[in-house]
């Protein structure tokens, strides 16, 4: 099932700081919902292990994330693919960072994803809602990184 995603988020940090954060697997591990580990397997490419859960629904995923078409520190594309007990998915998105004052910036994103297998076959009705929720969780976590930096966060 095809999913279109897109939107923009205000991040309480500088554009440069956001760029660094988005390129930091430690930050991404904390922000991607259910992400348990990201292991670098090549330049800008990571193997990820996820334990995803939304309400009662949950399952483990293995996948890869790679960053490409980088235009530091303003834009990059991300490609995600994975498979697990609930099904499989892949998607690409383009991120653009626009400064919005010294300590704030906008992250504009647009992309498409495709989800297949069990979860698409029996859950298409609420799949887009759930995806939106997960994206929301990602940005909420990302904002939190800047609001209350914990050790290892991007500076």
């Amino acid at each position: 099932m095809k999913l279109d995603i897109g939107g923009s988020e205000t991040i309480p940090g500088s554009a440069d700081a956001l760029w660094v954060a988005l390129n930091d697997p430690k930050v991404l591990t904390r922000c991607i919902p259910g992400c348990k580990s990201m292991v670098e397997i090549g330049p800008d490419a990571y193997k990820v292990d996820m334990q995803l859960r939304v309400a009662a629904v949950g399952g483990s995923f293995e996948g890869e994330i790679s960053l490409f078409d980088k235009e530091a520190p303003r834009a990059c594309s991300i490609k995600v693919s994975g498979a697990g007990s609930l099904g499989h998915g892949n998607g690409t998105a383009r991120f653009e960072i626009e400064p919005d004052g010294d300590h704030s910036c906008r992250l504009i994103y647009k992309g498409t994803g495709e989800i297949g297998g069990l979860v698409a076959g029996v859950g298409q009705r609420i799949l887009s809602s759930v995806s939106k929720h997960l994206i929301g969780r990602f940005f909420a976590a990302l904002r939190k990184e800047f609001e209350a930096p914990v050790s290892g966060a991007a500076e």
């Binding site: 099932m1 095809k2 495709e114 989800i115 297949g116 297998g117 069990l118 698409a120 076959g121 029996v122 298409q124 009705r125």
Partner: peptide, 14 residues
């Protein structure tokens, strides 16, 4: 089937 060849109606809910 969606354009990616996935069947979206695998249960009696759809």
């Amino acid at each position: 089937y969606d354009s990616e060849g996935q069947m979206l109606t695998q249960s009696f809910m759809d």
